[in-house]
Nucleic acid binder design. Structure first.
Lengths: 156, 156
DNA sequence: TTTTATTATGTTATAATATAACATTTAAAG
DNA sequence: CTTTAAATGTTATATTATAACATAATAAAA
């Protein structure tokens, strides 16, 4: 799905923005937080907590689940990553702080995630909630399917 | 959130429809499947797999996780229940077979779920997918927040 | 600059959710 | 019937996540 011509810049941009945000909010972007965010941004696929833990053990032999989950919580709380509930996995946020409602397209073929934020859709969701006299606080919208590239490949 | 004046009829309707659907599809609506669907429909709150297992043990002492998960899989596959990914819980489908895309409102206060299916919203989602050249196959839309009744109560 | 408070991380243990693999039973089809 | 297929039983284990308490590192106050 992704055609980022230079993934290194996806990664470095994400780290740069994360650092900025932490500075602005007076939060500490510690080495642990940085390395885990780096791992999550190593590609555009969702990362599983225990896979992160395994990688982390290469660096820190004594890493344990709470090490990872605490860091994921920090990153989630500060909008630097998202949790994909339908996959029990985590993905870097491609535009932290810019909005609150993010939607996800997950290609079951190439396993890549695309974060797509669309005001029309957000509006439609809020309208639906409103029609039901419901005050939305947290929206999970995850669309699984197949991206164009994979559909094209399958046709060959 | 719910004001079903007579919940017994929610339950009996659901069981009746499930039975009909199984007949139509040539599937067996066994006692186990029926009792678990009944448990799920005992209220409008999401049911957790291990809570179902605990209840099931009252009836069948030797019930074990696969007993429950297999039955949940059957009910899911045949559109009789939905899984709420953001809660790791299950809820009865309020209109099996009538459509494929169901959205959920979950009130964090009263814990009730409302299934809300809205063509406009489904259209907006498909449009978003289409704009991203993406073929949707499975949509998870779960809105957590507060229902009117609970908001009103809090104001008193 | 030392002390104190706060935040982050380490560590042990366990909870909660879910599935694999194989055995047995039950019901359906021939 | 009896053979086959579907459902359920059973044992074991995988996967995901958190509670609770100990220690270390940093920041703030004195």
């Amino acid at each position: 799905m992704y055609s980022c011509s230079d993934h290194k810049s996806c990664l470095s941009d994400a780290l740069y923005v994360a650092d900025k945000i932490c500075q602005k909010k007076g939060l500490r972007f510690t080495p642990l937080r940085k390395i885990i965010l780096e791992m999550i941004w190593s590609n555009h696929e969702p990362s599983k907590a225990y896979d992160i833990l395994d990688k982390l053990k290469d660096v820190n032999l004594s890493a344990k689940p709470p090490t990872v989950y605490r860091t994921l919580d920090f990153l989630l709380e500060n909008g630097l990553i998202h949790k994909l509930n339908s996959l029990n996995a985590y993905i870097g946020c491609s535009h932290p702080l810019e909005h609150s409602e993010c939607f996800f397209l997950f290609c079951q073929e190439c396993k890549e995630i695309k974060e797509c934020c669309n005001k029309e859709l957000a509006k439609a969701i809020n309208q639906t909630a409103s029609n039901n006299k419901f005050q939305p606080m947290n929206v999970t919208l995850e669309i699984q399917g197949e991206c164009q590239e994979c559909t094209d490949k399958a046709r060959l």
